[in-house]
Design a protein around this nucleic acid. Sequence first.
DNA 1: ATATAAATTTAGATTAGCCTAAAGTTATTT
DNA 2: AAATAACTTTAGGCTAATCTAAATTTATAT
Lengths: 223, 223
Amino acid sequence: MEDKLTQAVEDYLKAIYELSQTEGRASTSKLAEYLEVTPASVTGMIKKLASANPPLVDYQKHRGVVLTEAGMNEALETLRHHRLLELFLHDILGYPWDEVHEEAERLEHVISEKFEERIAAVLGNPKHDPHGDPIPRLDLSMPASAETRLSDLGKGDSGTIKRVRDTDADLLRHLSDLGVTPETQVKVVDYSDYDKNTHLKIKNQDEVVVLGQNITEQIYVEA
Amino acid sequence: MEDKLTQAVEDYLKAIYELSQTEGRASTSKLAEYLEVTPASVTGMIKKLASANPPLVDYQKHRGVVLTEAGMNEALETLRHHRLLELFLHDILGYPWDEVHEEAERLEHVISEKFEERIAAVLGNPKHDPHGDPIPRLDLSMPASAETRLSDLGKGDSGTIKRVRDTDADLLRHLSDLGVTPETQVKVVDYSDYDKNTHLKIKNQDEVVVLGQNITEQIYVEA
DNA sequence: ATATAAATTTAGATTAGCCTAAAGTTATTT
DNA sequence: AAATAACTTTAGGCTAATCTAAATTTATAT
Ligand SMILES: [Mn+2]
Ligand SMILES: [Mn+2]
Ligand SMILES: [Mn+2]
Ligand SMILES: [Mn+2]
């Protein structure tokens, strides 16, 4: 009942956590798509999670799952590993920010609590990963994270980039080329209602950058 | 035919490499003991290694295995990961030298070539791990390593500790407590033929340390 | 040359996580 | 309310790595 969780279980719990951020319960098909497995495989795994001791998810046939308290803690533990690793790979080993995710995805399941503790110490108990996502604290509580999208700013508004959706490596490369990275100060010098383009002045840069809505929706700022 | 090797396969190849250092071919029972699995499991795995494409071992029923060229390369690749990781955990993350092995044993199978390259760079392309064992080079050739045992020195001889067998965590803790670690200069101030004890003066230390033969046989020095 | 001991292999099972194909359930239209 | 579409579950199989128990082979000792 209290064996170490497998890699697959940890990835399912993390996926359920991520999907629950948007929708309420995580459905079989959404999970299947997210994890790139068949819906049948998801059903099988979900049953195991639900009948674990203690149960890791609350499962209702045909209407998906939510994490239990125990499941949530395991998900956050793995997420803490993941995000600490991403920052470690970036800051200490010099990985570009579009390459950290893949490596962290494997390492998160394998490092010990000691490794977690050591990299947290070396990094100075950081609050955010290289994409600005909050790192769960040691007690698994979550630091606040910016929720205002750049697409919601209007002409004349200014703020600091705080977070960028980390799912698309191409986008991440593109943004670091442009200089749009967390903690960068920016000002909206123009916004067009026709094409939804945001014209952005970036601190210490001359050229004004123009970003489409599909991009500005993935960037979060703080006034 | 050229799929990524599993963790189990990598550990078998590394074990065959280690055992071949001493005996010629690695026998089923020696492998079973080393890997803490049953002989039957070893037979099963050996057959797979032998019929892989390309074959990773040369197998002759009832007389064990030797690594093929391909198997040797895979073994050394994993060993390079392992020893770089040990040094990294010790030097960068501050692990004590008796705790690096266990963590490296899991991580060695999971890190990418990029991770290998980055820690090698951060460490300055090191030649030896924290126990003084040689780290295979990028081209998988092996740096020389000290082969004179401390037990072979006589009264009046002096030298530098170069390498310590890393299999016993208790011994490692004991030795670092005494100050017997690689690159330390020592002098044999006395040796007793009766109890095979070596009396050792350690540079920059006042107390003379007395070590039994079961310990001095596990320590390698250079004149 | 036989018997016994030691080492090795074979055979049959188990567990985790995945798959495909078929069957069943829920939601949406007409 | 029936038909259709979308989603979910069931059933049966597969692979990798392990195990136990039985059979076989090799080595050693009378
Ligand atoms: Mn993962
Ligand atoms: Mn991230
Ligand atoms: Mn290993
Ligand atoms: Mn070592």
